[in-house]
Design a protein around this nucleic acid. Sequence first.
DNA 1: TCTACTATCACATTTGAACTGA
DNA 2: ATCAGTTCAAATGTGATAGTAG
Length: 370
Amino acid sequence: MCIFSKDSKLHLSMPQSPPTAESYQQGCISMTLEKADLWKSFHSSGTEMIITKHGRRMFPHCSIRLSGLQPFVNYVVMMDMVPADSFKYRWKKDQWEVAGKSEPQPPCRLYMHPDSPAPASHWMKQPLSFLRMKLTNNTLDQHGHIIVHSMHRYYPRFHVTQADSPYTVRWGPFQTFSFPETTFTAVTAYQNPKITKLKIDHNPFAKGFREGGTHSHGKRCRSNRGSPDKRARLESEVRCNSPPGLQRMPSTSQSVKVGKDEQPLNLSACSLEQESLHTEPLDLQEYDYCCEEQMVPASMPYQPYRSLEYARYPLHSNEVDAAHSLLHPPHHQLSTAEHNSQQHGYYHHPQHYSQAGDWSQYPLFSYSCR
DNA sequence: TCTACTATCACATTTGAACTGA
DNA sequence: ATCAGTTCAAATGTGATAGTAG
């Protein structure tokens, strides 16, 4: 059920079911993307996210605001990455172009917000920051980072569910949200200089390279790069230090500090064409943020585990297929034709259904890292 | 030769322990 | 004894780039 709102918020509500003693009335949960203007800036140039073997934070990082939660109820908020399409890309002649079909999806991981579970009042009093979430291309990663393929496109997806502990998550109905402007291309090195400039302009951590360590002509001094003794020292440090993700892992009850740059932003200017999330290479001319209403990207409650929920809520035929594929993962990916054939109807994120089948597993993997 | 990935660099920022004073 | 504020060292994250692999 999608609701367009004048305040450019994303409203999704669960299909209504008769209120019973056991079932919670879901109401109408609303999720707003913070720093939407920044996301739009990046999206207009084709957002790229660096991924490394040891995990790299996102920039911009995901920050959302929740409202409409049931008072006095505990919720768990999670996030995962969904392939935006079924293609692999490459950067050629200052633009992205399709370089073939996507590779088999890496193991899917869910990032649980470190505050989870927490009461509704906690979630709604301030924006939720997913700053600590990291992306990696290491399929053997042991730190719980979200695994993505380089040169593939993804978008973050947020799940909200009632649960009193992380271990009861799968028994609650999910509500799923996503935002088209958060779609990005995973890369191991920046391709688009526009993105590099945007990141340097907005990311304080990049200052170290911009203002120091470089010569006036922009080349950095690398006289001692890779010296054997320095390398040995570094390797020794790596051996001695525990993994960063485990070193300062906050407890689940610890609140996340919200940085000074994480103030809520007015989303009134946020609106996106549905076409901004598609399978074609990014074309800057196609982006149009002048619409007054924000498209609602997702509409189906996400219930990967609870088959009973499917019976409770009548599903669109596509949804049934998607739900079926979630419970019974396909052995192969959808062909492009099959993929496209499922992208119809009034849903703004049909990928949720066609792509859902691409995700062969939904392990609950809670982690946080510094 | 080309493309993608990895390791490494210096420094600003963040974090948290230690300390001080009310 | 407790709390709040300050200080400071260590940890962390960042983009650029050379080297490597396929």
